[in-house]
Computed example of a mutant assay.
Amino acid sequence: MSAHYFFGIKASPHVQKNLKEWQQILSQSMDFKIWTDPDDFHITIKFLGGCTDEIISAYVNELKNQEWPKAFSLKIGPAGYFGQKVRPRVFHASVENSTSLLIMKDQIDRAGEKLGFEKENRNFNPHITLAKKKAEGTSPLSKAEYPSIFDIEYPMRVEHVYLFRIHSDQTPKYEPVEKFVL
Rank of each mutant, 00 (worst) to 15 (best):
M1R: 11
M1P: 07
A3I: 06
Y5Q: 07
F6W: 04
F6K: 04
F7L: 11
F7D: 06
G8T: 04
G8S: 07
G8M: 06
I9S: 05
I9Q: 03
K10S: 11
A11Y: 04
A11F: 13
S12N: 05
P13F: 02
V15F: 02
V15Y: 00
L19P: 01
L19R: 03
W22S: 09
Q24W: 10
Q24D: 13
L26K: 00
L26V: 05
S27C: 13
S27E: 12
S29G: 04
D31R: 13
K33C: 00
I34N: 09
T36M: 11
D37T: 09
D37E: 15
D39P: 00
D40W: 01
D40F: 01
D40R: 03
F47A: 03
F47P: 02
F47C: 03
D53E: 12
I56R: 08
S57H: 15
V60L: 14
E62A: 07
E62N: 14
K64F: 06
N65V: 03
E67K: 15
P69R: 14
P69A: 08
K70T: 13
A71E: 14
S73A: 13
S73D: 10
S73V: 14
A79I: 06
A79D: 08
Y81I: 01
Y81F: 12
F82E: 04
F82H: 03
G83R: 03
K85E: 07
V86W: 09
R87Y: 14
P88E: 15
V90H: 05
F91Y: 06
F91L: 07
F91D: 06
S94Y: 00
V95M: 00
E96P: 04
L102Q: 13
L102E: 10
D106F: 06
D106G: 11
Q107E: 07
I108V: 13
I108P: 09
D109R: 12
R110Y: 06
A111G: 11
A111K: 13
G112P: 14
E113Y: 08
E113V: 11
K114T: 12
L115W: 12
L115K: 13
G116M: 02
G116R: 02
G116L: 02
F117T: 14
E118H: 11
E118K: 15
K119F: 04
R122P: 08
F124K: 01
N125V: 09
P126C: 12
P126N: 15
P126L: 15
H127N: 09
L130I: 00
L130Q: 00
K132G: 07
K133I: 09
K133S: 10
A135P: 12
E136M: 06
G137T: 11
G137E: 13
G137N: 15
T138S: 13
T138K: 13
S139K: 00
P140M: 08
A144I: 04
P147L: 02
P147S: 07
I149P: 01
I149S: 05
F150S: 10
F150N: 10
Y154M: 07
Y154D: 01
P155H: 10
P155I: 06
V158T: 05
E159S: 09
H160K: 10
H160I: 04
V161I: 10
Y162F: 05
L163R: 14
F164M: 00
F164I: 02
R165T: 01
R165L: 06
I166L: 11
H167D: 05
D169T: 15
Q170L: 10
T171I: 10
T171D: 04
P172E: 01
P172M: 05
K173W: 03
P176R: 03
P176S: 10
K179G: 15
F180D: 08
L182H: 01
